[in-house]
Nucleic acid binder design. Structure first.
Lengths: 114, 114
DNA sequence: ATAAATGCATATAGTTCTTATGTATATTTG
DNA sequence: CAAATATACATAAGAACTATATGCATTTAT
């Protein structure tokens, strides 16, 4: 397997955050951006990304616009207002996840109050 | 759903770490311990835990011993040498996961060198 | 006595991802 | 200039992991 199973469930958080930061992005661009930021340590596969983007669209979290660049089609995604709200929630969930996991694996962090 | 999808793939790491810390534990005890440490914020369901424990056993990461307490059966799990090694790997993977996710969601942490 | 807690287990289904495959154009390399 | 690589989209089949539901049995609390 390419990525560890810990990344299962993290894709949506990653995509939403990148869209939030870059305003508009297309699928292939997202895979490259993740590659760049993580120094190639995390690979977003197309088989995971495209279905995920379609789902975000169906949920109304992103809007879509097609553009033609060099006779090749690009599908640009952009967060909706709902998508922006969801991004905030997902980022908070990530922080909570990290806090809980730290408490579980490191007794020093076992007091979750801070 | 009870827990966020981010916890998908984290169960084995949690179980291995708790076994590493407590020497021997039984299934029900693990669910309670997680509940206690996380102040009830993470619920380990039995439908997830028991198959996972059986898999760890099949992989040779844990040894099993049955005990009778108050006429009720307990199945105690204990890390093997291989299981201890795997625990170290899983904990390292978690730290790496956190580092990568922080870089992705927080531009401040985008220099992965430290 | 009845409910809740303790303790194990499995089966079905849902979600998420991997792997494989397909199509098409543009660019780089030998 | 032919072949490989990069760009850009997409889906289908199956694996992996978990949630939900259910079942059995005993003990403790109400």
């Amino acid at each position: 397997m390419k990525n560890t199973s810990l990344f299962k469930g993290s894709l949506v958080t990653i995509v939403l955050k990148l869209l939030n930061e870059n305003d508009t992005m297309y699928g292939y661009e997202i895979t490259q951006k993740v590659n760049e930021i993580t120094n190639g340590e995390l690979q977003i596969t197309e088989g995971a990304l495209y279905p995920s983007l379609h789902k975000l669209e169906a949920m109304g979290l992103v809007d879509v616009e097609f553009t033609k660049v060099n006779n090749r089609t690009r599908k640009y995604y952009k967060l909706t207002e709902l998508g922006t709200q969801e991004t905030v929630l997902k980022l908070a969930e990530l922080e909570k996840y990290i806090k809980i996991m730290r408490a579980l694996v490191n007794p020093k962090f076992r007091n979750l109050e801070h």
